[in-house]
């Protein structure tokens, strides 16, 4: 008797999640509200059923997330009886940092990377789960499942601990920490297929609907609230759109699509020719930009 591919991935991820709960003093699960987070959370719930998951969730809120994301987050937490910490970089808020005024790079650095580090330090988490997958980007393809961070949360790609079999080295020194990626070996298709088969709830923004958008820098940006100033020559149009990935709304490009169910999304995905991270402004600032961000402590 052998498992099919998805069942193997599922058991592998559950093993990883349990290992972290067993070996670390104060783990946390980073919950970004996206589809990968939803899958990761679903697996964590399975790993510890019938009990509650033995750690908290952390959402680093940049204050620029889509409204529907926040609504979905609060609903998920309530329905599953989970413990959530929401962290916002107050200093950034005081200085009115945002993606439109400060650009994607500064905004992401202050409201996401710095903010995440603040939260990890504040609560003294020694292990943090993230929903990143290796097929997303080629520096991620190089990262271990247990990714070590020094006291400044930095990743040193040239000095990763060898990771043999499933014998993860969970030993760290004081103030060091580990990021753990239970979905490392899942692909985008795997994630969607699993969402479909397991009937996992996801933010409605993944499904096509008529939404107000403007065209900016070759991307379709949704007008989620009135903080998005409409420039001369831009006009708001109602378009049938959806998102392949979710982040801060002014930085996340929508795709025109008719896919309004998971089935249709999968079909669209199988026929598409662009990778999902293409919708993200922050990856393409420069060659190797994801690697550099990761070294700074971004996921």
């Amino acid at each position: 008797m052998t498992f099919n591919h998805l069942k193997k991935l599922e058991s592998e991820s559950i093993y990883i999640i349990r290992e972290v709960a067993a070996e670390f003093t104060n783990p946390v699960m980073l919950y970004s509200i996206g589809k990968d987070s939803s899958v990761m959370l679903h697996l964590a719930i399975k790993a510890f059923a019938p009990n509650k998951i033995p750690f908290k969730l952390l959402h680093v809120d940049t204050t620029w997330k889509f409204k529907e994301m926040i609504k979905f987050r609060d609903q998920t937490i309530k329905e599953n009886n989970l413990d959530l910490i929401v962290h916002i970089n107050q200093e950034g808020v005081n200085n009115k940092v945002g993606p439109i005024t400060h650009g994607s790079k500064t905004h992401t650095d202050i409201m996401k990377t710095q903010s995440l580090k603040q939260a990890l330090n504040k609560y003294k988490f020694d292990a943090a789960f993230g929903g990143a997958r290796r097929d997303e980007e080629k520096s991620r393809a190089k990262e271990r499942i247990f990714s070590f961070r020094d006291t400044n949360h930095r990743w040193d790609p040239k000095n990763q601990k060898p990771e043999l079999w499933n014998l993860f080295n969970t030993k760290i020194s004081t103030n060091e920490s580990v990021r753990i990626f239970p979905l490392s070996n899942w692909t985008e298709v795997d994630v969607w297929q699993y969402i479909y088969q397991e009937n996992i709830a996801i933010v409605p923004l993944y499904f096509a609907a008529k939404r107000p958008v403007i065209k900016r820098d070759d991307m379709l940006i949704m007008v989620d609230d009135n903080r998005l100033e409409i420039k001369k020559g831009e006009k708001i149009e109602e378009k049938l759109i959806r998102f392949r990935t979710l982040g801060c709304y002014p930085l996340t490009g929508a795709v025109e699509s008719k896919a309004s169910s998971i089935e249709e999304i999968i079909i669209e995905l199988l026929e598409s020719k662009h990778s999902e991270r293409q919708g993200r402004l922050i990856d393409s600032d420069q060659i190797g930009s994801m690697e550099i961000k990761k070294q700074d402590g971004y996921f």
């Binding site: 080629k138 991620r140 393809a141 190089k142 040239k158 990763q160 060659i287 190797g288 690697e291």
Partner: peptide, 15 residues
């Protein structure tokens, strides 16, 4: 996928 690999033209770590 690593900057150092592209510069040196060799693979350093597993992908």
């Amino acid at each position: 996928g690593l900057q150092a690999e592209r510069e040196q033209g060799i693979t350093i770590d597993v992908a």
